[in-house]
């Protein structure tokens, strides 16, 4: 007879319970161990710098850059108000809000522009025979092999007064004077669209690649016109790709620094330039940190709202 048979049922249940608990503890430990690298990276490269920014935004600027370890809310106040140098009263100042507004306007226009250009390109690639697609994808990603700074400088050479476009137009005789294209919002927009186009094409392509093109025939067969097929079939099915592309373009476009600096000539400040300025010649680190955090908060809120609004609604006729 084995000893196990002598153990009363309650004891058996207790020991079983204990064994299960031990097993669960071990699973938890293993899981934590396996998660550690990911958590570590998020902590070191994500949360830690953000905490520094948050702390710095709540301090006072040092005279030669850096921070004075004195708690102050001034950086956030400065964003919306101007302090009178004589009597210390606060007056509303919309200059920084305008910079935010301009940046958002430009970023949203960039997003729309890349979507208009990128969707047809992604569709074109997805409609190629599979063996040709890799070539087109390679062509799309080719610019990434060159540094963004160099590409932006090349863009500058193309659009400046004695640049390629103006020389060509004057040679053909369409214009007699060079068009002023460099250092305009148009030049910045063109530069941003050029830089971020692949970020729109690739996610949309990924969602179109799995697309069953016989659905288009099914749509036409069921009396949908081309426009209706696009609206009721293509767009809803590729929506995840469109949303991903828009997010991937909008967010970096908002914080773009090199393109507005070079192609806009730094004439009109963008958020990215404003923030960079504070850590450079502006010597106002707390304000730079505050502006960065405000930007992040606005983007996060906008993203959450738009994702909620864009979530697929499947009610049906049921």
């Amino acid at each position: 007879m084995s000893s196990a048979t002598h153990i009363p049922p309650t004891d058996a249940a207790t020991s079983l319970h204990a064994a299960q608990a031990a097993r669960a503890r071990q699973v938890r430990r293993t899981r934590l161990f396996l998660l550690a690298p990911a958590l570590g990276i998020i902590g070191i490269f994500g949360l830690f710098p953000l905490s520094i920014a948050l702390v710095y935004s709540l301090l006072e600027p040092g005279t030669y850059g850096g921070v004075e370890w004195v708690f102050s809310f001034d950086a956030y106040v400065q964003f919306l108000f101007e302090r009178d140098i004589f009597d210390d009263t606060l007056a509303f100042n919309s200059a920084y809000l305008q910079i935010f507004g301009r940046s958002f306007g430009l970023a949203i226009t960039t997003m729309i522009g890349t979507l208009m250009l990128g969707f047809p390109v992604a569709y074109f690639i997805a409609a190629r025979p599979p063996e040709q697609r890799n070539f087109w994808l390679f062509a799309i990603t080719l610019p990434f092999w060159t540094n963004l700074l160099i590409r932006t400088y090349s863009m500058l050479l193309i659009v400046r007064d004695e640049g390629f476009v103006n020389l060509m137009l004057m040679k053909i005789g369409i214009i007699s004077e060079p068009l002023e294209m460099l250092y305009t919002d148009g030049a910045v927009l063109a530069g941003l669209i050029y830089s971020y186009l692949p970020f729109m094409i690739l996610p949309i392509y990924a969602s179109l690649e799995k697309f069953d093109f016989s659905l288009l025939e099914a749509g036409h067969d069921l009396y949908a016109s081309r426009t209706q097929v696009f609206r009721h079939i293509i767009v809803p099915i590729t929506r995840p790709g469109i949303i991903a592309g828009c997010v991937l373009v909008l967010i970096p476009a908002l914080g773009a620094y090199i393109t507005p600096e070079l192609l806009g000539g730094g004439k009109k400040l963008m958020i990215g330039n404003l923030i960079a300025l504070q850590f450079g010649s502006g010597r106002n680190w707390p304000f730079g940190a505050a502006a960065a955090l405000i930007l992040m908060a606005v983007v996060l809120i906008a993203l959450l709202v738009s994702l909620r609004a864009g979530a697929p609604k499947e009610g049906g006729h049921g």
Binding site: S214, L215, A218, L222, Y223, I237, E314, G316, H317, G318
Partner: peptide
């Protein structure tokens, strides 16, 4: 070639909807 983003009912009603 059923529309994967629609319910069974909307699939069936698609032609009439169009």
């Amino acid at each position: 070639a059923l529309f994967p983003h629609m319910s069974v009912a909307r699939n069936v009603g698609f032609g009439l909807e169009m």
